[in-house]
Amino acid sequence: MRRRITLSRATLHVALDSIAAQRGPRDVVLDLRADAFGHGTVEVQAAARSHGFDRFAHDDVNMYRDAVDADVTAALYGTAPDAAPVMTVTGEVISCKRVPAGSPVSYGYTYRVASDSYLALVGLGYADGVPRSASNKAHVLLAGAQHVLAGRVAMDQFMVDLGDERVVSGDDVILWGAQPGAPSPGEWAAASGRSPLELSAGLGARFQRVWVTA
């Protein structure tokens, strides 16, 4: 099953350039805690060093802990509003089925489709770090448009209400990221009540992490 975190070197370098230009690389501390909030400490630190940064906050090290700056952190990972996120989170459509109007969806029947609809089953759940609190609120990019998570997020899967759109097994589902039309980390944060950094750091071990040049 495909569960992928795509990390953009180009976006990270643009962010580092911008921080270096505004603040000076030796005047800020970059926050690399929680494995660079799920991005990968090794890669982020190496990229930062190439831009002249040399002060980093790591887990369980008190030095610099109080020197981290939330605005710099948001700029680094691209989680600020209107910033390009370094991370894109992608899952996979497992199946798609047509259900009649009024059909309940997932545990507790907290969601019912308004009209005859296609429902896509996506192979990601709260065990992967998709917050259960995002149930019925967050949106994903699928079939060229954003669609709401229908019903409660389960341990290994969630459902998406596609209305009249149809998708096929294996299609990519983007939770948040840099693609045009994709939800932003901030939108997922608002929907789930977790901060963007908690969201990215909370993505689970079943994900494959891939750094790409672009």
């Binding site: 497992i94 089925k97 309940p104 997932s106 429902l119 089953l121 019903g151």
Partner: peptide, 14 residues
């Protein structure tokens, strides 16, 4: 068989 959860499982028609 899908008995109401509407995740995977065949619908009654399928």
């Amino acid at each position: 068989i899908d008995t109401g959860l509407h995740r995977n499982g065949a619908t009654e028609d399928e």
